[in-house]
Nucleic acid binder design. Structure first.
Lengths: 231, 231
DNA sequence: TCAAAAGTGTTAGTAGTACACCCATGC
DNA sequence: GCATGGGTGTACTACTAACACTTTTGA
């Protein structure tokens, strides 16, 4: 039994994922998702995910979003033998500095687009796990407040808009986005009498509200869906 | 390692789940989700789900919807020791006869509402797994063609409407529902020059189309209207 | 003929989009 | 002042909900 982590964040307005370079066989030298085996037969699976998050990424799970993504257990996915891996999706707020820690030398943020477009091969079935994680994040942005997990505690509406644009890979009208998110009660909580130094007019600041499910949902612009012809 | 199955179907216009009575400790005599341990270290997890589906419910997975729901591995969830269970959600079309098979004596369909409202205690954490499965089904009806998995190969639009009403627990306007589903290209494929004996005017028949993702989605009413008592 | 269910037309209210415009700041 | 991003108003369009109405069958 193992756990693997898809840790997503926003850096330079791009959706990025944390990868580590494998130092041992199999797939030594290849990039992989952070993860590892359960410590012992009694370790809680989600506890193991938190432990790996801390060990490999030096992220404490306090205010970090962490959810189970799925379980990958096809025989043959690990050449060492039967390994069943429970994958978790973690969302981290933008952090100023790159991850520094024990495995720091081998850990790096990579733009998700670069990885998924095939420019970088991942070990095991990690490419698939990453794709599933990104799709989960895309879908959950529509109906839940997951977007705020990408933001620091205090943020502006345009910060949040950058999250949506990066994850969905679209560009949105800032004025309509502004009203849309404000129109969801409990999504954003204004932080009174505060602002931030920027270029133009200062923006109001917000904290994430308690509302977990967004209604009405924020719909992503419709991407072309090929209608398969009936056979 | 084990697999558990949430098998949902529509019977008497109600959403029902297949339960089995446990014959052995722990929780002997209680109702539980069908499931069991992996046969050996090399058995594929989804393969094991198919095997249990066949053994315990006598449903062949040919045209049956089956998807992974999640993995439940909290220490202590099984008094026998550490058991990690991968739960699957299966959707079965309405079957005329109750399940008949090796465990037939102990297997029965139960209305989901009765089980979730607490009238019936399930073994292990199966109540939670069932709740997660139902919520997954509810959500997927909005954006995917999952509803057709509840229907036989050939069905009418009002058959499909009954699925939505039962799963969501609402009542829908048949005329608007009719146009809504017809307006999704690739969702339904008309079966030409066929009809069915009923009470009123015969209905056109349809097969499920190849379109897996519905756009626009069918949105469930935000404030559920209590279903009027029928029959 | 009537009852029942299928299917169509129409309309009012509402949500989403596009975009013109004003506001508050740094330089 | 001007540039830049924040925030507001508004018209237009598309979708939805509600419901009157017509069609096609069995009895």
């Amino acid at each position: 039994m193992a756990v693997d982590l898809v840790i997503l964040t926003l850096r330079s307005s791009k959706l990025q994922v944390l990868l580590v370079e494998r130092g041992v066989a199999p797939y030594s030298g290849l990039q992989a998702l952070p993860g590892g085996f359960l410590n012992n037969a009694a370790e809680d699976i989600e506890g193991a995910a938190h432990r790996e998050l801390s060990e490999e990424a030096h992220l404490d799970g306090a205010q970090l979003h962490l959810e189970q993504l799925g379980t990958y257990g096809k025989p043959g996915r690990d050449p060492r033998g039967r390994v069943i891996s429970v994958a978790y999706l973690a969302i981290a707020p933008s952090l100023p500095e790159p991850i520094a820690g024990t495995d720091a030398a081998s850990a790096s943020w990579r733009p998700v687009d670069d990885v998924l477009s095939g420019g970088l091969n991942l070990a095991f079935d990690h490419q698939q796990i990453l794709a599933d994680g990104v799709e989960r994040a895309r879908a959950k942005l529509e109906r839940t407040a997951l977007g705020t997990a990408f933001c620091p505690e205090i943020f502006t509406i345009s910060d949040l808009q950058k999250v949506y644009e990066a994850v969905w890979g679209v560009s949105l009208d800032p004025r309509n986005f502004y009203r849309k998110v404000q129109g969801v009660p409990g999504f954003l909580v204004p932080v009174e009498s505060t602002r931030r130094t920027t270029k133009g007019r200062p923006a109001r600041l917000y904290r994430a509200g308690t509302r977990a499910v967004l209604s009405p949902p924020l719909t992503r612009p419709e991407h072309p869906i090929p209608v398969e012809e009936e056979r």
